[in-house]
């Protein structure tokens, strides 16, 4: 159990990510800086992945039940998305953002220790559980990055240095994130039919997941027609992410969440 101490793992991961980021940041001055940096960030990500796998085996159920456990997945997927997009587009800020956010999630989990309760209610024991949560977490990671593009864009507009090309990057992320959002919603519907008798019951989480989906749907349609109205597009993108955050976290604090099958107990 000592090896599995979450705090130690989290600190090791955070350290590896920070060292890696520093190497990448200074890759002009350090020989092979980028290579070494990549190795560090990848190793850090592998460490947290291995931790999740061991945890999964240890508690004998997918670690996806509580909000803390979904934060852990976020800390796995964000760096993966960040590293892959960094390889593709070479944007350093992109990588730093995803690593920074992942570090934030790990720190929240250190400050709010989990019990890793073994109990998983029978309705959650379904082959749909894992794909449903994984596509959602990956989608949230992608859309989270797109939201930073929107915030960055709105910031640049203030200083009149915004270039519309930036939004094309966001578009790609939104298309990928939105398609996974669609899959998550549909997997959830198919699972609900098997577990609760109907594919759609307007459960508060379902309602907010649909709202999230509709918000990004709106963004896609607006962008499709109005390539040049970038400011409106940036605002839609930023607001859509707020809806996503309410769906993911805020829902537990809303009056409507009383009898949701998605209310996480932690």
């Amino acid at each position: 159990m000592d090896i599995l101490n979450f705090n130690n793992i989290a600190f090791i991961t955070i350290a590896l990510w920070i060292i890696g980021s520093l190497f990448i940041l200074g890759d002009q001055k350090i020989k092979n800086g980028r290579l070494i940096g990549n190795l560090f960030t990848i190793t850090g990500t592998l460490v947290i992945i291995v931790f999740v796998i061991i945890l999964w085996i240890e508690i004998d159920r997918p670690p996806m039940r509580t909000i803390g456990e979904t934060r852990l997945w976020y800390a796995v997927f964000l760096p993966i998305v960040g590293i892959l997009t960094f390889f593709k587009w070479k944007y350093k800020w992109f990588l730093f953002y995803s690593l920074g956010l992942a570090i934030l999630f790990l720190i929240i989990n250190i400050l709010k220790p989990e019990n890793f309760d073994k109990v998983l209610m029978p309705a959650l024991q379904s082959p749909w559980f894992v794909p449903h949560v994984i596509v959602y977490m990956l989608s949230y990671a992608l859309l989270g990055v797109s939201s930073v593009v929107s915030a960055w864009g709105l910031y640049l507009i203030k200083f009149k240095t915004f270039k519309p090309k930036l939004l094309n990057k966001a578009d790609n992320l939104v298309y990928m994130g939105f398609s996974l959002l669609t899959l998550g919603l549909l997997f959830g519907a198919l699972w609900a039919k098997e577990a609760w008798g109907h594919y759609w019951t307007w459960d508060p989480k379902e309602t907010w997941a649909l709202l999230t989906w509709l918000s990004y749907l709106l963004y896609i349609h607006f962008r499709f027609r109005h390539k040049h109205k970038t400011v409106t597009a940036l605002w839609i993108l930023a607001l859509a992410f707020i809806v996503l955050l309410i769906c993911w976290i805020g829902i537990n604090y809303l009056a409507v969440s009383g009898n949701s099958v998605h209310t996480y107990t932690s």
């Binding site: 508060p204 309602t207 907010w208 709202l211 709106l218 349609h221 499709f224």
Partner: peptide
């Protein structure tokens, strides 16, 4: 066309948004 599509999405979204805040 797109304006009709966007207004339809917005109307639908608005009502679902009300559903998201008002206990049903």
């Amino acid at each position: 066309g797109t304006p009709a599509a966007i207004s339809a999405i917005c109307l639908y979204t608005f009502l679902v948004l009300l559903m998201g805040f008002i206990p049903q």
